[in-house]
């Protein structure tokens, strides 16, 4: 065999390998597409297109029925901020609701988780009791509480100890804010509690015991050992409560319908009514929907960056 022949052979074998590799990447790309396609189709039709559509329509005067529409620039956004007191009020109402729910839900859930984790025999029982409301839908919970607010509390308030329950729980907007909060907390705390309990189980006993031997009291142990160790759970629960609270809808819809008037309207309900039960101003409603999206996005980014910093410190 001559040198040339050997060289030739080498070359062809290199070429073949290259071709094979090309074929393989081609077939792996094909198989990637085939595997992803089912998920992508559903995602594309029911999430991506509506999302992009909402962005585009928010700049138009589309009414949802008429096929034609005009682009109106930022007019919808300006109107939402300047000339729509109901929407503005719904924003501040939702913000207030979010702040209250965020703090109370996390603090109470963490407290319950800490207390329950310290039990031995009654752990399962209490866990079941506190988690049960979470299984019941918000709609059913709200209707149950309608009964509690309009029938049970008035009767209870006749007894001296419970006289503070004598309120107009659904009729008075200042009070019904708390009614909405109560139902949300009652239904939502159990879920966060479960996450906190799982995180607490991951804290090594040796750490808290070592701190105890070093003379740390229960609050020092909590602050210096336990809380830093469950920081990731605090991040997750903060994310879930903030996100969920800003999108609150069911409770308000079932409990007060946003009333009296629009005094307890939340953002999601305002958007819903603008689009589906008022005057079908779809373009305008979409601009409000985009504002909700941006608000949720900004809050999420702020929350995650704060949590990340805390997690690093811990």
């Amino acid at each position: 065999m001559t040198v040339k022949a050997i060289n030739d052979k080498k070359e062809t074998s290199v070429n073949v390998r290259k071709k094979e590799k090309k074929l393989r990447t081609k077939s792996s790309r094909l198989s990637l597409i085939l595997f992803v396609l089912p998920a992508f189709i559903f995602y594309f039709i029911f999430l991506l297109i509506p999302m992009l559509g909402a962005g585009v329509y928010s700049f138009t005067d589309w009414n949802g029925l008429n096929p034609s529409y005009n682009f109106v620039g930022f007019d919808n956004y300006i109107e939402a901020f300047k000339d729509d007191p109901a929407f503005r009020d719904s924003f501040f109402f939702t913000l207030k609701y979010t702040i209250v729910v965020f703090f109370v839900q996390n603090i109470v859930a963490l407290l319950l988780a800490l207390l329950i984790e310290s039990r031995v025999r009654s752990k399962g029982f209490f866990r079941t009791i506190f988690f049960m409301p979470n299984m019941i839908s918000l709609i059913i919970s709200s209707f149950m509480f309608s009964f509690i607010f309009t029938n049970v509390f008035p009767e209870l308030s006749q007894k001296a100890v419970f006289s503070f329950l004598d309120q107009s729980w659904i009729g008075d907007p200042d009070v019904s804010f708390y009614s909405i909060v109560i139902v949300s907390l009652w239904q939502g705390i159990g879920y966060m509690m479960i996450i906190y309990m799982a995180a607490l189980q991951g804290v090594p006993k040796s750490l808290t015991e070592a701190a105890m031997i070093d003379g740390a009291n229960i609050f020092q142990r909590l602050r210096q050992v336990t809380l830093p160790m469950i920081m990731h759970a605090i991040t997750i629960c903060s994310f879930l409560t903030l996100n969920g609270a800003f999108k609150v809808f069911d409770v308000v819809y079932a409990l007060t319908q946003g009333g009296p008037g629009t005094s307890t309207q939340v953002m999601a309900l305002n958007i819903y009514q603008e689009a589906f039960s008022n005057n079908f101003r779809f373009g305008y409603a979409n601009s409000k929907a985009m504002i909700l999206f941006l608000v949720v996005l900004v809050i999420t980014i702020i929350q995650i960056s704060i949590s990340k910093r805390k997690e690093v410190e811990a």
Partner: peptide
């Protein structure tokens, strides 16, 4: 896929109903 997890349902419900 991951980025879309941040999209609130209420922001797309109007266009979704049309779709």
């Amino acid at each position: 896929f991951v980025a879309s997890m941040l999209v609130p349902f209420h922001s797309i419900m109007i266009t979704l109903s049309q779709m």
